[in-house]
Simulated scan of single mutants.
Amino acid sequence: MKEIMAIVRMKKTGATKRALIEAGVAGFTAVKAVGRGKLLPHDEINVPCKEKLMGMAASDVIDRRESEEQVVTFLDDKRMFPRRLFTILAYDEDVPRIVEAIIRANRTERGAGDGKIFVTPVTDAVRVRTGESGDAAIW
């Protein structure tokens, strides 16, 4: 028995739910989370992002220097970003199929921030309603 924890973009919540259901997952938990991944010092990713954000800045509300400071703060390694954390318990043999479904639903062409998946062993599970334990408790 394994626990799969998947951290995904908030906008990918619906796609991830559909992918899990299509992969045959009987149940899962999803909670809001905030976090920070590795800062990518790649100009080919950061410069277009900075330009896009600067283009969205309201010049009639704040001046360009203040806008640029906010954008740089947003892109540096200090800000936490909203994410969704999915938790799934699965049989060992189902893990590759579930992980692949999560990857397909969340991979983008952005080059960063698509999420992380962690798979850990689970020693036991207990269904509260019936008292069943082990594999019987997860499906």
Rank of each mutant, 00 (worst) to 15 (best):
I88V: 15
K116M: 11
K2F: 10
I98N: 08
V34F: 03
I62G: 00
R83M: 02
G113C: 05
R18G: 09
F28Q: 04
A30W: 04
T120N: 09
V99E: 12
R110E: 15
L39R: 06
E3V: 14
G55M: 03
L75E: 01
D76R: 09
D77V: 10
R110D: 12
V34D: 02
D114V: 02
S133F: 13
R129S: 15
K116R: 15
K38Q: 11
S67L: 04
D124S: 14
K116D: 12
T87D: 00
R18L: 10
C49D: 02
D114C: 02
V126H: 03
A112C: 02
R110M: 13
K17Q: 09
A112F: 08
I88N: 04
A33M: 04
P48W: 08
S133D: 12
R129E: 14
M56Q: 11
G24C: 11
E22G: 01
F74H: 11
I138V: 14
Q70F: 14
D114R: 02
G115A: 06
R65M: 04
F86K: 01
A112Q: 07
D114G: 01
V99P: 06
V128D: 04
A90R: 07
T16C: 02
D92H: 06
V126A: 05
T120F: 11
R84T: 09
V8G: 00
R18M: 09
D76Q: 09
N106M: 06
M10P: 09
D63L: 07
D76I: 11
V72A: 06
A19C: 08
V122G: 08
I138M: 10
E66F: 06
F81K: 03
V122F: 09
P48E: 06
V119M: 05
G115Y: 04
E132D: 13
D135Y: 14
L89D: 07
N106E: 06
D94I: 10
A137M: 09
M5H: 02
L39S: 00
